[in-house]
């Protein structure tokens, strides 16, 4: 009974995901524009980064120039989160070792 319920709910989630992937509808408020799986949406922001990135940040890899230059605060937060995670893991394992003694 419980397995059957789990299977039915997973099938419903799977069917809705397949429906979204095949027929995504309008996206971003612009009607009549359908996204196709594997062909990402093209916006004005992409054009700006593609045409100005090589001049402004002097790098070929636009993704790296976005991650480290245009959106640097994001990377600073990510590095801080990693640092805090390592700090927490070290504190937990050290407390476990002290309890054992």
């Amino acid at each position: 009974m419980r397995n059957a319920l789990v299977a039915i709910s997973l099938l419903i989630v799977f069917a809705s995901l397949v429906y979204i992937a095949v027929n995504p509808g309008d996206f971003g408020g612009q009607t009549g524009e359908h996204l196709v799986f594997g062909e990402p949406k093209h916006t004005d922001m992409d054009d700006y980064f593609i045409h100005h990135g090589q001049n402004q940040s002097a790098a070929n890899n636009i993704v790296t120039s976005i991650v480290f230059d245009y959106r640097g605060y994001d990377t600073l937060g990510e590095a801080s989160v990693l640092f805090a995670a390592v700090l927490g893991a070290g504190l937990v394992l050290r407390a476990l070792r002290r309890d054992k003694k």
Binding site: A58, A59, N60, A79
Partner: peptide, 13 residues
Amino acid sequence: NTGGVLPIMNLAV
């Protein structure tokens, strides 16, 4: 030899 601060930040991260 391009990229400005990007290679330095890459190395740091």
